[in-house]
Amino acid sequence: MEYSFTLFEPHKERSSKLIEPRIELRPNGRIVFNKLATELLNNSPFCMIGYDQETRTVGLLPLGEQNVNSFPIRYATKGAYVGAKKFFKHFDILPEQLIENNPFASGDFIGIKL
Rank of each mutant, 00 (worst) to 15 (best):
I73V: 11
I49A: 08
D52S: 10
E9D: 12
R74Y: 05
F109A: 15
K35L: 03
F91Q: 06
F33T: 01
S15G: 07
G79F: 02
T77G: 01
G29D: 01
S44L: 01
L18Y: 07
F46Q: 09
K35C: 01
T55W: 06
Y51F: 15
P21E: 01
V68M: 11
S70R: 07
S106Y: 13
L61Y: 15
D52N: 15
F91E: 06
R22E: 10
S70K: 06
Y75S: 02
F8C: 08
Q66T: 09
M48D: 14
K78V: 06
E2K: 12
R22T: 08
F87H: 02
A37W: 01
Q53P: 07
N34H: 02
G83Q: 11
A37K: 00
K113S: 13
P27R: 01
P72N: 00
L61G: 00
K89Y: 05
V82K: 05
E13W: 05
N101C: 08
K89H: 09
G50K: 02
H90I: 03
V68N: 13
S15T: 07
L114C: 11
P62L: 08
T57A: 06
I110T: 13
G59C: 12
I19A: 10
I31R: 03
N42A: 11
G79D: 00
L7S: 14
I110W: 11
F5D: 07
L114H: 08
H11P: 03
E13S: 13
R26A: 01
S16C: 04
I112C: 08
